[in-house]
Design a protein around this nucleic acid. Structure first.
Lengths: 231, 231
DNA sequence: GAAGAAATTATACGGTTGCATAATTACGCG
DNA sequence: CGCGTAATTATGCAACCGTATAATTTCTTC
């Protein structure tokens, strides 16, 4: 980087390469926030809400605790940001699995992805539960929860309506919403139980039950065996 | 503190009737434990897990904090007892609503009761979420969770199998279990959303969606309108 | 290369927490 | 009635929490 000379060659050499005595390195605001959020999520998932102290979070992110206050006005704000990040990642990840095939196949993939790892995961459930307890008492957390819930459910409603339309069984808005509420609850419940009791269900069992039940609720066969007409 | 008196007029009179200066009253171990558990539940529901400190809990129970250690070996043990109490109450309460009519009517009542107040309740959901976060890291909490989940689901499975048998559509064990898992997840999901977003659903909407969806999943009409054949 | 601004660390503080221990108090029993 | 014991309170403690502030270090810019 700096050629600058031969003798005394250490003088112009960037300290961050040679000198181990550097106290810290500056990073972009974004990467520091992400590191702090990530540390928060890890700790809540591993040790529970009470394990996520500012000191532990800072240690995970590789910084000292004072820095948290430099990027977030309070610990609560950091928790909020972590909650938002977690839920957005969860929903986006699931939505990406839907793919871009037919409406029926997109719905099938969406349901199935929601009920398999990595979406079904003990850590993710622990995280979600830890946050939910705070949702009731913090208006901002409540807002994030509302938005996230609506986001997931609306996405599901769109998929359901499109699939039913595709096979010639169109439904009106009210009915579409009711179906989405029901399927959303079913998926949430299965996801929750799969994450809370990882050993209680066989591999693929949740996905299979989910597909069968969604099919029954919306009156449209989504399972593969259903694609082979038996008459 | 005690003015020691002028004319001994207090002698012989039971102190607990006249003398307000009693420092405390002895209670049975059971009632003290219940009061402490009740205080714990109230606080977690109202203020979240972090609001349930030993001092606040003791205040709710009308005692001083040292007494907690006299009845529970640690705060964790109190939390455990509170969790167990809460879940048992929830399941027993729901089961009682089923009544003793026909199998189909018992199932209908069970589903409906699970999706209406007082079972659907923000406080109960906050409570449940607060505990769930601890379940993953505490083996004893995990045991309570397993038992409670199995209890509720088995009860539901019994009702479903009986109802299907009653209408001449018997199912084998494996299928009964699958149906119970699905319906349990559906009910849990609806219960959760109803408690977490109290204003998002109209009165009776959750129960209606729940009945319709359970009917679709198990292939047996439970709603009233279904009892009036339309053609 | 010096200077100034911004990022980061270092240190300190008041409050709270769970827990332990000692001092009181109530109550059953002879 | 008095005495012993167990229930209950009172007090204290060490650790930890979140936050504030001052002191350093890094990096950019001229």
């Amino acid at each position: 980087m700096q050629p600058y000379n031969f003798f005394f060659c250490h003088l112009g050499v960037p300290r961050d390469v040679l000198d181990q005595s550097r106290k810290f390195k500056r990073e972009s605001a974004q990467s520091r926030r992400e590191a702090l959020v990530q540390g928060t999520l890890e700790l809540i998932a591993e040790l529970g809400i009470s394990g996520a102290t500012v000191r532990e979070i800072a240690a995970r992110a590789g910084v000292t605790q004072g820095l948290i206050r430099h990027y977030f006005s309070s610990k609560d704000e950091l928790i909020q940001a972590a909650y938002e990040h977690h839920m957005n990642r969860l929903t986006d990840q699931t939505a990406a699995f839907a793919g871009d095939g037919s409406a029926v196949s997109r719905l099938r993939n969406f349901v199935e992805a929601s009920l398999r790892p990595p979406i079904v995961d003990p850590g993710a459930v622990a995280l979600w539960a830890g946050f939910l307890n705070k949702v009731q008492h913090d208006p901002k957390m409540q807002h994030v929860h509302r938005r996230t819930y609506a986001y997931f459910r609306d996405h599901l409603e769109t998929l359901i309506v499109a699939a039913l339309h595709e096979v010639g069984q169109p439904v009106d808005d009210g009915e579409g919403q009711r179906l989405a509420i029901a399927c959303n609850a079913l998926i949430d419940g299965l996801w929750l139980e799969g994450g809370a009791l990882p050993d209680a269900f066989g591999e693929g069992q949740l996905a299979q039950i989910g597909l069968t039940s969604v099919s029954a609720i919306i009156g449209l066969e989504l399972t593969n065996k259903g694609e082979q007409p038996c008459g």
